[in-house]
Design a binder for these strands. Sequence first.
DNA 1: GTTGCTATTATGACTTGGTACTAATAGTAA
DNA 2: TTACTATTAGTACCAAGTCATAATAGCAAC
Lengths: 192, 192
Amino acid sequence: MRIPKVKRQEKLRETIEETPFITDEELANKFNVSIQTIRLDRMELSIPELRERIKSVANHQWNETVKSLPLEDVIGEIIDLELDKRAISILDIGKEHVFTRNNIARGHHLFAQANSLAVAVINDELALTAKSVLNFKRQVRQGERVVAKAFVEGINEKGLTLVQVDSFVDSEKVFSGEFHMYRSTEKKENNE
Amino acid sequence: MRIPKVKRQEKLRETIEETPFITDEELANKFNVSIQTIRLDRMELSIPELRERIKSVANHQWNETVKSLPLEDVIGEIIDLELDKRAISILDIGKEHVFTRNNIARGHHLFAQANSLAVAVINDELALTAKSVLNFKRQVRQGERVVAKAFVEGINEKGLTLVQVDSFVDSEKVFSGEFHMYRSTEKKENNE
DNA sequence: GTTGCTATTATGACTTGGTACTAATAGTAA
DNA sequence: TTACTATTAGTACCAAGTCATAATAGCAAC
């Protein structure tokens, strides 16, 4: 069964970004079209042929230095905040957030945005993340805007505040996290 | 003026090691011999042709040793690596890692170190984090050294590879994470 | 001078993963 | 029916080779 051209081309680009060493023949098999269609698609999308891609990868300088994250406490820009209820922040994915080889955002930026929003939504500036459960739904690319929404869901039996954070690109969920937060004002014990 | 064969072949090997993207034609011009001679030389020296060399570099297999790092941006310094088994990295917490108001390391740096180590330990450079469960045990301060240790624990029923990462400061556990990783070579389905 | 060997060069068929171009076919909307 | 888009097929050509065969030149041994 064949998908529409626009969708196929979108997936083609993603596939080549994720597996740059794939041949046109393999792509034709994968998308159930002819090799000429793949080549027409690549031409329309300005995606170079396999050997050019291999050469680009080989030529690229991989030894990037680790980039320090921004010094702000909040990753992203808070655009809505209701303490102890909910908050929203946005993060525009720039090239400093992505792996240069495939323009995919590093997971820890998504986590950093979500985590800092979870801390920010709590009416306690000394709140700490004790535990979190993260789900990465799909890769985020340079140029996309991540909207993170945090909801305070209550306190569990251990006295930790539960904050759920869901992140979206264009109403498509790309990440979700469950954050179990210490509040400094409700700590049962103070140990380090 | 032409140099003897043995010397030429020695210089040929050196030249290709220094500039692996050089063509046979360029080598023939450089050594003042025919392109067939270069090809005979390469055959005798078991030096692969240009496209194979480019492919090797691109695949990061050229001169790969255990101490060569995988192509991910690793947070921290890998000091031990056994692919698909275990890895260790260290991260010295500087002021760029901490909140300025209390010198406490932000959680996402610990996560970033652990996550990148979980990716690095997997023998698949396209590995992705699908899900993770994080436990922050205590705060980490500026000036402390975080030693993260990753162990590949196996594959769960969903086909994801489980990697456990524990981080220590002076043999005291400060963080633990359970990472559920996609491998590109074992994907059960391709959805997004 | 001849023979045998090595080194070098030339030639041609073929491979792989394409580009570029032309042309044909099918589906669909107007 | 027409016009357009999407797709496919066919063909010439390209680059950087491999592989095989054959020719030539230089040189040492006899």
